[in-house]
Simulated scan of single mutants.
Amino acid sequence: MCWSGEASAALAVTGFASTAFFYRRGESKVLCLALAYFSLMELLQAYTYSVIDQCLNPNNQVATFLGYMHIAFQPFFVNAVTMHFIPEPLRKRIAPFVYTLCFAAATVFMMRIYPFQWSSFCFDHYYQFLPGTNIKFTMPFCGTEICSTSGQWHIAWAIPASGSIQMANSYVYAAFLLPLLYGSWKLVLYHLNTGPLLAYLTTNDMNEWAAVWCLYSIGLLLLLIKTPIRQYLHVTNWYGCRYPQFLK
Rank of each mutant, 00 (worst) to 15 (best):
F116W: 00
L224M: 12
V98S: 08
T138G: 03
G163K: 05
L224T: 08
I229W: 04
H84T: 15
N207Q: 05
P228Y: 00
T48L: 13
G5V: 01
G183M: 01
L222T: 02
L187M: 14
R24A: 14
Q152H: 00
S119H: 10
S18M: 12
V212R: 05
M206Y: 05
S184C: 08
C147N: 04
H234W: 06
Y47K: 07
P89W: 01
N193H: 02
F65C: 14
G15A: 08
A17P: 11
G183K: 07
A168S: 10
P196C: 01
Y126I: 15
T64M: 10
N204L: 15
Y99S: 02
P160W: 01
S184K: 05
L247W: 08
M167S: 11
Q245D: 02
R24I: 14
Y239F: 14
D205C: 11
F116R: 00
V172A: 15
I94D: 07
L197C: 11
A168Q: 03
A34L: 11
E42A: 09
A36K: 08
M110W: 03
A10C: 06
P228Q: 05
T64V: 08
S8T: 09
N207Y: 00
M83D: 03
W118Q: 14
A168Y: 15
P87V: 04
S170F: 10
R24L: 15
A161H: 02
Y239N: 10
F103P: 04
L233D: 14
L198F: 11
A7L: 13
A168P: 10
A156D: 05
L35E: 09
H125Y: 15
Y190S: 10
L180W: 11
E88C: 10
N60P: 05
C55G: 00
L233A: 07
